[in-house]
């Protein structure tokens, strides 16, 4: 039987204790800060320069705020792109996120890492945008995409582009939960709070998303 050719796969490892968060995949626009696993979302351990930039930006310094954008912008874009599955929408969302962050910066107390705080702002913006776009009929959490024909044969996930494309094709609800949980590291409880569903519902949607991805990648 064909085995998957995915970097980092250890087929027989126990599955009981998966980490709650993943690391930053690659450097952001600016040299990356240290990635730390937070309680459900990605945190960026702020160096002194970032703390200074946060304080300066909160006082109205746009150049300092631009530096924050350069540091975190690409991660926020990745989140928006994967959540929305549309590049143009994602670029608009990123602008919305940073404009909102600028407006709310004085409310950032430093209790969490700035990256985590910004990430939360982004998720809320993406989700509220979805509500505003309710006129357009999209597939939802409750749609009836079939899972009956889950493949028994192995799939190819060797090309990451395949997976990106497959994620973009997921139904909206399943895609969001997959992105938040498996890519961004949110827990089911956090996702439940964000989406207004139970953690059990989040878990079921995540499993469904993974099976759909397997199905898509096996074609």
């Amino acid at each position: 039987m064909h085995t998957l050719t995915v970097t980092g796969l250890v087929p027989d490892q126990p599955h009981r204790h998966r980490p709650s968060a993943s690391a930053v995949a690659q450097a952001s626009f600016a040299p990356a800060a240290t990635a730390v696993a937070g309680s459900g979302s990605i945190g960026i351990e702020a160096p002194d320069t970032e703390r200074a930039d946060i304080a300066a930006a909160a006082s109205g310094d746009r150049r300092a705020f631009e530096r924050l954008y350069r540091t975190h912008g690409q991660r926020i874009f990745a989140l928006c792109l994967r959540m929305s599955a549309d590049r143009g929408t994602a670029e608009e969302l990123v602008q919305d996120v940073f404009v909102r962050a600028w407006q709310k910066l004085d409310s950032f107390r430093g209790d969490a890492a700035f990256g985590t705080w910004l990430h939360r702002v982004a998720v809320n913006i993406v989700l509220s945008r979805r509500k505003q776009d309710g006129v357009r009929r999209e597939r939802t959490v409750d749609d009836d995409t079939s899972l009956d024909a889950a493949p028994a044969r192995a799939v190819h996930v060797g090309d990451r582009l395949d997976l990106e494309a497959a994620i973009a094709q997921l139904p909206t609800g399943a895609r969001r939960i997959f992105v938040l949980h498996d890519i961004e590291g949110y827990t089911h409880e956090e996702i439940g709070d964000l989406l207004g569903i139970t953690s059990g519902g989040s878990k079921a949607q995540l499993h469904r998303a993974r099976l759909l991805l397997r199905e898509a990648l096996s074609r």
């Binding site: 970097t7 998966r18 993943s22 995949a25 690659q26 952001s28 996930v157």
Partner: peptide
């Protein structure tokens, strides 16, 4: 194995 590979790859997707 397939689902494990999907999760593993998802965690390492480039930005």
């Amino acid at each position: 194995s397939d689902l494990d590979a999907i999760v593993s790859t998802a965690r390492s997707l480039p930005l």
